[in-house]
Amino acid sequence: MFDISPTEWIAIQLSLRVAAVATLVATPLGIAVAWLLARRDFWGKSLLDALVHLPLVLPPVVTGYLLLLTFGRRGLVGAWLSDHLGVVFAFRWTGAALACGIMAFPLLVRPIRLSIEAVDRRMEQAAATLGAAPWRVFSTITLRLAMPGVLAGMVLGFAKAIGEFGATITFVSNIPGETQTISSAVYSLIQTPDGDPAAMRLVAVSIVIALAALVASEWFARRALQRLHGN
């Protein structure tokens, strides 16, 4: 029963890689967007807020189809990227990472935004009177104090990315070894005669990964909080 086959291993590794890359690339962008939404007033702020949350409310298949239209080989952005930078998303694992990153983005941004909003602005003022330029106030005070939220956002984003199915399969299909993540492998297996034992193994692996992510996030959050409230 726990004899995981090479194909299943590949799906597991691919899932981890796709989710890790999606999270790591989305995090700096997520921090920037969270900071803009938390601390700046500008024209179009509600529009940006809505755009960020769109993947949460759109059917995933719609997001996947839009990605295909935009980043597919003949898509506006996809064609340009492939011609000028040699970057291809369509039917590649990088496309899966893009889909997962976009689907995970709202979940990543929200806790970061809340934690930046919770940072005492008087601390930032104190830093400014000590000679810290705005970007150094951000990196030495705001971001440090918001760190528990950043970690929480990363864990949520990672969890969403590893479970993402609809947008990914629509955008990059279900190609074993290239775009077949745990979710799409389970989907294929349960439609295959005698696929149940393999599906069960992958289900067990999913549960282990999810639990490990949750335990790790608890641990990080507790450590970060301890550091903040300093004892």
């Binding site: 008087r122 601390m123 003022q125 104190a126 104090l145 903040l228 300093g230």
Partner: peptide, 10 residues
């Protein structure tokens, strides 16, 4: 120097 000190907690 602020009334509430505002030391950086981290």
């Amino acid at each position: 120097v602020f009334q509430d000190a505002r030391l950086f907690p981290h």
